[in-house]
């Protein structure tokens, strides 16, 4: 939780995941270099570095992009989501090395500014096979730089989770630019059915998972419950909610998570104040609703983070009749105390 800001909020799990990320990157690079030396020994070291880090960044970007939808489709992937930010920054570093070496190799030997040279060395913008693909890669790198540099909780807090998340959706634009960068660049020079096929499969995987997850979310959003005479929404039987877990319902345009714990029921807004994580997919830990994304905690009866933290979410009134749970669709102010319903 963000009471103050530290450069990196390390914990045991984060350290383990970061070691795995570093190890994975090193293994990939070593394998790439070895295979290149075997199959293409006449290549230069600069070319090898450019290709190794470029392909590594693309591989990591694909992994990053599928973690989100995978977590929404299957909660067992949530630990990966928890550590995605470091993977993103590592991916940016790989892309930066690729970009820096490419600029050094292709644009520093002339008499113009290397950045200016990226945009002007090839002006064939109307061509398909000779399109200045490096421009696309450069723009994607700028987006990744922006994202990596604003990935810290300081920016999240000051920009607001909604704005921050919206800005970080620019990664999809970066992904599109990178795919076109590769198809208009590397594949035009060295056409290979294998590498092209791998990237096409990667694209279908990323796009397919995102669309599938979005459709699943749409189903939840389309929930239309029965409204009783008092305007309360009939949602489910109390037995349908597992102990220390929640069920999520769409109430109006918002999602509400109804938690069952210690023989009681409480309802809070489903959106975590940190990064908009789905609180209803988390569980009650030490008496607190714990966000599955980054572990932010809230008390179920008042939606307040336990002291000294200050985050608050809206709460909702509940009623229990003959084992049926009803929720008042009119949410209360964030942090408002609501007497839990005994069940």
């Amino acid at each position: 939780m963000g009471l103050d800001y530290k450069l990196v909020l390390w914990n045991k799990h984060k350290k383990t995941y970061d070691k795995l990320i570093a190890l994975g990157m090193v293994v990939y690079l070593v394998l790439f270099v070895m295979l290149t030396l075997v199959f293409n020994p006449e290549g230069t070291a600069e070319t090898m570095i450019i290709r190794a880090f470029g392909s590594l960044a693309i591989l990591m970007l694909h992994i990053i992009l599928i973690i989100g939808p995978l977590s929404r489709l299957n909660p067992s992937f949530l630990p990966l989501l928890y550590n995605r930010r470091h993977l993103g920054v590592s991916m940016f570093l790989a892309a930066l090395i690729h970009g820096a070496f490419s600029i050094i190799q292709f644009h520093t030997l002339g008499n113009v500014n290397p950045i200016y040279s990226i945009f002007t060395s090839n002006m064939d913008y109307g061509s398909l096979t000779n399109f200045p693909f490096q421009v696309l890669g450069f723009l994607a790198l700028l987006i990744l730089f922006f994202m990596a540099s604003t990935s810290h909780d300081f920016f999240l807090k000051n920009l607001s989770p909604s704005v921050w998340k919206g800005l970080h959706m620019m990664v999809y634009l970066a992904y599109a630019l990178i795919l076109l960068h590769v198809f208009l660049g590397a594949f035009q020079q060295e056409t290979s059915m294998a590498t092209t096929g791998i990237l096409v499969i990667g694209f279908f995987l990323v796009a397919g998972l995102h669309i599938r997850a979005a459709l699943k979310e749409s189903k939840v959003d389309a929930f239309k419950g029965e409204i009783d005479a008092n305007g309360w929404l009939k949602v489910c039987l109390v037995d349908e909610i597992d102990e220390n877990r929640a069920k999520i319902f769409t109430v109006g345009r918002e999602r509400v998570a109804i938690f069952k714990y210690d023989g009681k029921l409480s309802a809070i807004h489903n959106v975590c104040k940190h990064q908009g994580g789905p609180l209803g997919e988390g569980k009650i830990v030490d008496g607190c609703v714990t966000c599955p994304w980054h572990g932010y905690q809230y008390l179920p009866h008042n939606g307040q983070s336990p002291p000294p933290f200050t985050e608050k979410v809206a709460t909702y009134e509940l009623r229990l009749e003959s084992g049926m749970v009803y929720v008042n669709p009119r949410g209360l102010d964030e942090g408002t105390e609501v007497e839990p319903v005994k069940c």
Partner: peptide, 11 residues
Amino acid sequence: MDAKLRKRHKI
């Protein structure tokens, strides 16, 4: 994600 971000994401 809130409803607005979910919709933006889907679109």
